[in-house]
Design a protein around this nucleic acid. Structure first.
Length: 129
DNA sequence: ATTCTTACA
DNA sequence: TGTAAGTA
């Protein structure tokens, strides 16, 4: 559950090999959801790094931003979900929902991913850099 | 020294 | 996507 948003832009650039321009662009496209410091500086988490690497890979594979949205969605997609779940009590605690007896879903991540895919729609043509 | 936003090459 | 300008 170590999802602290403490990684700087510099670190993120070094670790993903992406330019700050690209990282900020993907942020605008809502592919990543970094936190903000007092000075409005972006603060990334390990998950953000992983997401960026995933985005980089998909982009290299020739997929467009819309396609990637289908693959990686809201901040509540598997990985980032731990963050919210960590705020015990404060935030929604789905852990003890009586869903187990009704749904054969082993974990929330699987369920969320499942739901995310149902909102997947049309695909789009590929784009060049 | 770094990052941020906006805007144009 | 890169980069310049003006900030914070």
């Amino acid at each position: 559950m170590n999802q602290e948003k403490n990684i700087t832009m510099k670190e993120t650039k070094k670790r993903t090999g992406l330019s700050s321009r690209q990282i900020r662009y993907y942020d605008q496209q809502e592919l990543i959801f970094p936190a903000r410091s007092k000075g409005n500086q972006r603060l990334f988490s390990e998950n953000d790094i992983q997401r960026l690497l995933k985005i980089k890979k998909l982009l290299a594979a020739g997929d467009s931003i819309e396609i990637i949205h289908s693959k990686l969605q809201s901040p509540t997609t598997a990985a980032d979900f731990d963050i919210e779940a960590d705020y015990e009590g404060q935030i929604n605690d789905y852990s003890d929902l009586d869903l187990d007896s009704l749904y054969p879903v082993s974990n929330r991540s699987a369920l969320i991913k499942r739901l995310s895919q149902s909102s997947k729609h049309y695909s789009q043509e590929e784009e060049k850099e």
